[in-house]
Design a protein around this nucleic acid. Structure first.
Length: 304
DNA sequence: AATTCGCACAACCGCCGGCTG
DNA sequence: CCAGCCGGCGGTTGTGCGAAT
């Protein structure tokens, strides 16, 4: 079933594309758009299958593609995202404007993977349990890491780190209003937040505890009530809806000792340092777990 | 200079899920 | 409900080129 109908009707060319073929494809798509890919080869006068045309356009001919080497910022982002998302190249690539999933995948396989291996495995994943300052944190607050390259232990470490980020992220300061509102809606509202505070909400210690408790209640309740779980806010959607990606040329988190500006927010909201972590964790959590709609519990954890 | 090797990148293959008739 | 079509995705293979021998 790998071949589509368009590939069976006549002999199709395979292999590298010639400049002439590229030109035909570009002319066709800039003139007519691609519409249905299976008709593109016919319109363009190409002896290729529609899939091949689509791939060539997406991976090579698209005008918004950014060629050249990956910047250190992009590399770092890929590593971070891969740690969470695993080999979901398309999802990773969405956070890298001008880059394709194929490009990211090749870059990972040819470059990053080797670097990580040569650094004795996965160095940035070596997080010790001592970072766990909360007895609950060892549980699956976040999804089991889908990264197939990680050992179970490494996955646990990822969970520890990410969960910790979530919990310690809700300190004092300002979060993106939409995200705050989402959290507030979901939790039923922190104990004493004023409506007027929603514009620039600040999380008191009480509110922080309330939110943490809500997260923990929901995620660790063994009463596996899917309807409850499904009410978890999909923070990632909010973040992604606000163009959660790095700029084309550089990434500037403009981080100082106390905090920084999230590049994913066009408003450039100033976010305290610990909440940058929180946003990271939120993206991770909702990308890999919430969107799956389930919270598998780690059987090795104390909640039985 | 010829050959081999390794790497980066391009392209293909097979599968899956959504859509439609 | 089912089958066919299609786009999208991830894994894998193929190709070209430069470095090493």
């Amino acid at each position: 079933m790998g071949h589509h109908s368009c590939c069976n009707k006549q002999k199709v060319r395979k292999g590298l594309w010639s400049p002439e073929e590229d030109e035909k494809l570009i002319n066709c798509i800039t003139t007519y758009g691609h519409g249905c890919w299976s008709t593109v080869p016919r319109i363009a006068g190409l002896q290729r299958c529609g899939k091949s045309c689509r791939l060539r356009w997406i991976n090579y001919l698209r005008p918004d593609l950014k060629r050249g080497n990956f910047s250190p910022q992009e590399e770092s982002l890929i590593i971070d995202l891969h740690r969470i998302l695993g080999n979901r190249w398309a999802q990773i690539a969405r956070h890298l404007p001008g880059r394709t999933d194929n490009e990211v995948k090749n870059f990972w396989n040819s470059s990053i993977k080797k670097k990580l291996i040569s650094h004795d495995g996965v160095p940035e994943l070596t997080i010790h349990e001592t970072s766990n300052q909360n007895p609950y944190v060892g549980d699956s607050l976040l999804a089991p890491n889908p990264n197939p390259n990680l050992t179970t232990t490494a996955q646990d470490h990822v969970l520890l780190q990410s969960a910790s980020s979530v919990q310690h992220g809700f300190g004092h300061g300002h979060l993106k209003t939409d995200v705050i509102n989402c959290i507030v809606d979901w939790t039923g509202g922190p104990p004493s937040v004023e409506k007027s505070d929603y514009d620039h909400p600040t999380w008191s210690l009480d509110q922080q505890h309330h939110l943490e408790a809500k997260f923990l209640d929901t995620k660790f309740m063994r009463s596996s009530d899917p309807s409850l779980v499904s009410t978890m806010p999909q923070l990632c959607d909010l973040v992604e809806a606000d163009e959660c990606h790095i700029p084309y040329d550089t990434v500037s988190y403009e981080v100082d000792d106390m905090g920084g500006t999230l590049p994913c927010f066009s408003s450039g909201s100033y976010v305290p340092m610990n909440q940058l972590d929180c946003m990271d964790a939120a993206v991770m959590a909702s990308s890999s777990l919430l969107s799956c709609g389930n919270f598998p519990l780690n059987p090795d954890l104390p909640f039985k």
